[in-house]
């Protein structure tokens, strides 16, 4: 398959990071990342590297310079006033992230990690954050996704694929391309 847009003429893949914990719908970023990796392997599409992280600070370790990436795509759960399963796409930097802060002081929130990566010149040129609305996390959450999110996963995976490949339509299998943007928004 044709590679994605490259950096300085080299074939540099897209780095996709699924963020989340295994608890309930907070796992949606992890699950989508795994599904994307499986799909890419099945399609023989090598221009994407998928990693999983429980907390954002690990992004700094992955972007330590040992690999170069043209693009970073973050998959993460978010809480919003939209329905569960709503798909949102933000390009970094974005005003919407100014107020997002971490709840744990020994960790850094995603906006802080991305800002720090930028100041340390580790950030790829293009950064996209794909957020999936979930219900507010509960300590009582069981492992595994809720039925609502499980039902939405095929659509969400198509939306993730489309966002990752939008620079390179030729790389998208015809069945994966949808004519409309389903249940989502881009800001």
């Amino acid at each position: 398959m044709k590679p994605l847009a490259s950096d300085q003429g080299n074939d540099v893949p897209t780095l996709v990071i699924g963020l989340g914990t295994p608890h309930g719908d907070d796992a949606v970023g992890l699950v989508l990342g795994q599904d994307l990796a499986t799909w890419a392997t099945d399609q023989g599409w090598t221009q994407v590297q998928v990693r999983s992280l429980r907390t954002p600070i690990g992004i700094l370790d992955i972007l330590d310079g040992s690999d170069r990436f043209a693009r970073l795509v973050i998959l993460d759960a978010c809480v919003s006033d939209r329905p569960i399963g709503h798909f949102e796409c933000w390009s970094w930097p974005h005003d919407a992230w100014e107020t997002a802060r971490c709840t744990g002081s020994h960790d850094l929130a995603l906006p802080d990690v991305l800002t720090l990566a930028e100041r340390l010149r580790r950030l790829p040129r293009s950064v996209t954050i794909l957020g999936i609305t979930i219900a507010p996390p509960s300590p009582a959450a069981e492992s595994g996704l809720s039925a609502t999110l499980q039902a939405a996963m095929p659509r969400l995976l198509r939306q993730v694929r489309r966002e990752i490949m939008h620079d390179d339509p030729a790389a998208v299998a015809p069945s994966a391309v949808d004519s409309t943007f389903e249940n989502g928004s881009r800001t």
Binding site: L60, D61, D64, T115, L116, R119, L120, R121
Partner: peptide, 24 residues
């Protein structure tokens, strides 16, 4: 904070990240 310090003293933050990663 470290975020603001990184603008002027990136070397200290880089060192922190390298050391912390070794521990982790």
């Amino acid at each position: 904070g470290a975020l603001e310090m990184a603008r002027d003293f990136p070397e200290h933050v880089e060192r922190a990240l390298r050391l912390k990663k070794l521990g982790n």
